[in-house]
């Protein structure tokens, strides 16, 4: 995985939405890189902007500002025609296996859609061969070809979604909460599938989820988002062993562990996530942070590289004096 040039470079990416009460900062000045073949996990609670970020970087939503470079070229500046070609390389799998499949199309029609839109095959026979092949790849029995999504369970629907995203042989796939709507057993089956696909075809993933144990399982590196900003970014091991940002610490401590008698010392955060509409200067987390100081209110902490490969956006990372907990 050692490469000089990262495959994806996102710089100062912003996405604001106009609302009646002011600008909603869904993604606010976010920068990171992704290497070829790796999985970047994107975690955060609802409304932190992780899904918006996933959509903006592949231009399903138009960015307000910033760059998203793939192989050195900023796709946010691409013309419509060039972007259409680019879509073949950059794909997305959606969260909801119910609403992400057109209920009027059969399984084979759903998987054929990207092939038809991009006119990949000229003959129906070739196309059908590809569809069958894709169904094998994602573990869908071929006899389901003419089934309709409403006849299938969530796991198999999600397999259709995955097959559809693989149809154009992409290199980069955004997985937007691909297992959140599924039961644990089915979730495990899909996670294994995604894993083996990556090994087999060398895909690069962005894995978006609110479930930390799932993210940890699939990711090489993890970015933690809070209110539109990345507050911490590092390899998965360091992040779980020694979280640097107070929010990451609280988030990790909040997971109920499925083990008896292993309760963590929980950091209970005060209050709720504040509104992302016209957020004030300073650290976004300071209102709930157990370690806040005056400067946190005035100065927005930059995401800085504290040690090689470990980024954190906190003025006092490593110098926090924990009042409680470990």
């Amino acid at each position: 995985m050692e490469q000089t040039h990262p495959m994806v470079e996102v710089t100062n990416l912003k996405k604001y939405f106009k609302t009646k009460r002011g600008m909603l900062h869904a993604v606010d000045d976010v920068s990171f890189t992704i290497r070829k073949g790796e999985t970047l996990g994107l975690v955060g609670e609802s409304g932190c902007g992780k899904s918006t970020l996933g959509r903006v970087m592949i231009r399903l939503l138009e960015a307000t500002g910033g760059e998203a470079k793939f192989w050195g070229e900023d796709i946010l500046r691409y013309s419509a025609g060039k972007m259409k070609d680019m879509r073949r390389k950059v794909q997305i799998v959606f969260q909801d296996p119910y609403s992400s499949l057109n209920p009027r199309l059969s399984v084979s029609e759903l998987i054929a859609e990207p092939l038809l839109v991009n006119r990949v095959y000229s003959s129906a026979a070739e196309r059908n061969r590809k569809i069958a092949e894709l169904m094998d790849t994602v573990g869908l029995a071929r006899r389901l070809m003419n089934a309709y999504p409403h006849e299938l369970d969530g796991g198999r629907r999600q397999r259709i979604g995955i097959a559809r995203s693989l149809a154009l042989s992409p290199e980069f796939i955004v997985l937007d909460e691909p297992v959140s709507a599924l039961d644990v057993c089915i979730q495990a089956q899909i996670l294994n599938l995604l894993n083996s696909l990556q090994k087999q075809f060398g895909y690069t993933y962005v894995f978006i989820s609110h479930n930390l144990s799932v993210v940890k399982h699939v990711s090489d590196r993890i970015a933690v988002m809070y209110l539109g900003k990345i507050v911490e970014l590092s390899d998965y091991k360091s992040l779980f062993v020694e979280p640097l940002h107070p929010y990451t610490q609280a988030l990790l401590s909040a997971i109920p562990l499925p083990k008896f008698g292993k309760k963590r010392d929980r950091i209970i955060l005060e209050g709720d996530v504040p509104s992302p509409i016209e957020p004030p200067e300073g650290c976004r987390f300071q209102g709930r942070c157990p370690y806040r100081q005056d400067v946190c209110k005035e100065k927005t902490p930059e995401l800085r590289e504290l040690e090689p490969g470990r980024f954190v956006a906190c003025h006092f990372a490593r110098t926090l004096v924990p009042a409680s907990g470990k």
Binding site: V184, C185, Q187, A188, N195, S213, V214, H217
Partner: peptide, 18 residues
């Protein structure tokens, strides 16, 4: 059920699924 949940404390390549 237990095997399907990714373990936070250890690394497993593949989950043992039902």
């Amino acid at each position: 059920l237990f095997n399907s949940i990714p373990d936070l404390d250890s690394d497993e390549e593949e989950l043992k699924v039902i």
